[in-house]
């Protein structure tokens, strides 16, 4: 019943959060990396996670699609609800979860396969399309939405690794989109890119917001300000402050946030 209540709008008409995390504690062996993080992610918005290096942004992000499962000494405590269901529940299938929560990594990591096969891989393993024509259509529409189609339409058979860094990152975004997830996690997706490629991807994120919920880790204050509607500031494994991006950057409540965004540490 509780779950049901959470998925329906409350009295004030606010949409329920896509992700709702409470008391999230993460340990790498003996070392605790996250302390009691409590954060809600709003649907169809871009949420950016900022904070100094090593504060646990990636760790938090990787909790959301259980990517931490493969790190052997990593232990996650607390409740992480996606649409009201705990994703660490025994009944949740991690493969299913990762199909719903896609991820784009810091370094572009296309498969050493053709551009087409890179995008088609997810739909293929999940059996999303029933014939070749549908698959081609899905691959093309994903490439179009990732803003890459025009550049690669004549060479879909070339290896994905033959593209430039920015193109590779957009290919990885297309690959994530093709699985038709609800949430896309991005861990510093532009850190390896030049300003022009970065601008393209920022545009892209803004367009994708319509259909996806996006959580992005970034080290660039400007980027966070440009692309996100909400911003969460992490420090030393703790969530210090979260709120509307504008508010965080103009009137931060916490001294540490203030120091960080004005460049006094980080």
């Amino acid at each position: 019943m509780a779950a049901l209540e959470m998925t329906t709008p409350d009295a004030a008409g606010n949409r329920p959060p896509k992700f709702s995390t409470k008391n999230v504690n993460v340990f790498y062996g003996e070392k605790q990396a996250l302390f009691d993080v409590e954060l809600d992610i709003v649907e169809n918005q871009v949420t950016s996670l900022i904070g100094p290096s090593g504060c646990g942004k990636s760790t938090y992000l990787r909790c959301l699609n259980r990517m931490n499962d493969v790190v052997e000494e990593c232990r996650v405590d607390g409740s992480i609800l996606l649409d009201g269901h705990n994703i660490y529940d025994r009944s949740v299938d991690v493969v299913q979860l990762r199909a719903e929560v896609g991820m784009v990594f810091q370094k572009p990591n296309p498969f050493p396969k053709s551009i087409f096969d890179n995008v088609a891989y997810g739909p293929r393993i999940h059996g999303l399309t029933s014939n070749r024509a549908e698959l081609v259509e899905l691959v093309e529409s994903s490439l179009i939405r990732a803003g890459l189609y025009e550049e690669v339409k004549d060479r879909l058979d070339n290896p994905g690794t033959s593209l430039s860094g920015g193109q590779q990152q957009r290919l990885c975004i297309a690959r994530a989109i093709a699985v038709q997830p609800e949430v896309i996690l991005m861990d510093e997706p532009c850190s390896a890119l030049d300003p022009i490629a970065t601008a393209r991807i920022e545009e892209l994120i803004d367009e994708l917001r319509e259909n996806f919920t996006i959580i992005i880790v970034t080290h660039s204050m400007q980027q966070a300000a440009r692309v996100s509607q909400r911003t969460a500031f992490f420090h030393l494994g703790k969530l210090v402050e979260v709120g509307d991006t504008e508010m965080i950057f103009t009137t931060p409540q916490d001294q540490r946030t203030q120091d960080y965004i004005t460049g006094r540490f980080g």
């Binding site: 699609n65 990517m67 493969v70 493969v95 299913q96 979860l97 990762r98 199909a99 896609g102 991820m103 784009v104 990594f105 370094k107 990591n109 296309p110 498969f111 050493p112 891989y121 997810g122 393993i125 999940h126 990885c172 690959r175 994530a176 699985v179």
Partner: peptide
Amino acid sequence: SIREAALGVGA
């Protein structure tokens, strides 16, 4: 990174 990429799309 290849393993992560594949896991990330739900393999």
